[in-house]
Amino acid sequence: MDEEYDVIVLGTGLTECILSGIMSVNGKKVLHMDRNPYYGGESSSITPLEELYKRFQLLEGPPESMGRGRDWNVDLIPKFLMANGQLVKMLLYTEVTRYLDFKVVEGSFVYKGGKIYKVPSTETEALASNLMGMFEKRRFRKFLVFVANFDENDPKTFEGVDPQTTSMRDVYRKFDLGQDVIDFTGHALALYRTDDYLDQPCLETVNRIKLYSESLARYGKSPYLYPLYGLGELPQGFARLSAIYGGTYMLNKPVDDIIMENGKVVGVKSEGEVARCKQLICDPSYIPDRVRKAGQVIRIICILSHPIKNTNDANSCQIIIPQNQVNRKSDIYVCMISYAHNVAAQGKYIAIASTTVETTDPEKEVEPALELLEPIDQKFVAISDLYEPIDDGCESQVFCSCSYDATTHFETTCNDIKDIYKRMAGTAFDFENMKRKQNDVFGEAEQ
């Protein structure tokens, strides 16, 4: 370990593993360490099931009705991949897709007046949907046509809207959309967690709705994908990429100290040895004095023996409960997957309800979601602090990732990755940087 590296990475969460992969592909010498004996950090999948019970201090362990412990891979952080989103792009560019198998999530649902409705995925579904009345549908269709044709580089498509100054509230007004449709559009399509976006320039919202539609167009059922064997497969896929390009991995490796000289990182000390480096990437748990708390998320993992009611017996789905429907500031989400994804025993389902904490009784906040899941065989409640770095790391060369937020997709995580890359490399992130180099010394032969 007593060696000189360009970059040392602490923690094998998804953000850290993707950055480690990119740095290795770009010719950097990388050492990647984790104090845990497993990959994934906060974003790991726990197996066998006995391990999950232990982690949540349920000492009696799983009953026999849960089947074989080894058949379970339970995500600690519930997220899906947008089919046309940035993480899929990263997987394709790096060819990490060859280590993973994905399934399309069967449906996306939205909560309205105590019931759940399928988010329409085709024009026919939209016309048949009970989510809105006849005239509302016509106006909504006009709005969707506007979004589909919108091109930020072609003012002819703006229809009198200025993407940089017109607020989204004004765009909704222009198409005369009612409150329910606005809730549905902002939260189930643009996937905002709160209503803060309404008074911001509309460009980002329009682009988010386009991303949803384009992702949906790829597979038809929903815009989301999920990897077989759980999300823990993602960091491992990128760790393989890093290793192929010469990255060194050490799990179960305690970090005793991060060594600084004149305010700059110069190395990491572990078990009496020092590895030197020019730059350091880590998750917040490794540098508690360089991060601040930015809120909390509650996630309740529920094991069920039945599909969720009114989802047409889907073996995977997402449910969004827009905040307006339950008098909150932030949406509540449910991600459900099952034995069909090799993450649970035969006939079992895993539904994870999550939201940003707003009160001193977080469990009560998630109740509307839990009511949709009854009866629940077993619950595991996790309340996590969200951390963000206190500075950009440019001076110390210590670059810290943000905690995983309450969103049900990876777009915010990818933004964090691109942002850290830019601060480390001094140049904007470009997907081309992730391409495997042809015929290089570490390149794998085609399968």
Rank of each mutant, 00 (worst) to 15 (best):
I8N: 06
I8L: 05
L10E: 01
G11L: 04
E16N: 02
C17H: 04
G21S: 08
I22M: 08
K28R: 09
L31K: 04
H32Q: 03
Y39D: 01
S43I: 06
S44A: 11
S45Y: 00
T47I: 07
F56T: 08
Q57T: 02
P63N: 08
G67C: 09
G67S: 07
R68L: 07
W72Q: 01
L76T: 09
Y99I: 04
Y111S: 05
K112G: 03
G113R: 12
G113V: 05
Y117C: 11
K118D: 05
E123D: 06
F135E: 04
E136K: 11
V145F: 05
P155A: 06
D170S: 08
Y172E: 11
G178S: 11
G178W: 08
Q179Y: 14
H187N: 00
L191I: 00
T194K: 13
Y197D: 01
L198F: 05
E204W: 14
T205D: 15
V206C: 08
N207K: 03
Y212A: 11
S213T: 00
E214S: 02
A217S: 07
G230D: 01
P235F: 15
P235T: 00
G237D: 02
A239R: 14
L241R: 11
A243T: 03
G246M: 07
N252W: 01
K264T: 05
V266M: 10
V266D: 15
G267M: 02
K269E: 10
S270Y: 00
E271W: 01
V274F: 13
D283H: 08
I287S: 11
R292F: 12
I298E: 03
I300S: 05
L304A: 07
L304Q: 02
K309N: 05
N310L: 14
N312V: 12
A314G: 07
C317F: 04
I321D: 07
N327R: 13
K329M: 06
K329Q: 05
I337S: 13
A340P: 00
K348R: 11
Y349D: 02
A351G: 01
A353F: 02
T355D: 15
V357A: 09
V357M: 12
V357H: 03
P362F: 10
K364I: 09
E367D: 04
I376M: 12
K379T: 07
K379R: 10
V381T: 13
A382T: 10
A382G: 08
Y387L: 15
I390L: 10
C394T: 13
C394K: 13
F399C: 01
C400D: 01
E411K: 04
T412M: 06
C414S: 12
K418M: 04
I420K: 15
T427N: 14
F429R: 15
D430N: 05
F431G: 02
N433S: 11
D440E: 05
F442C: 13
E446A: 12
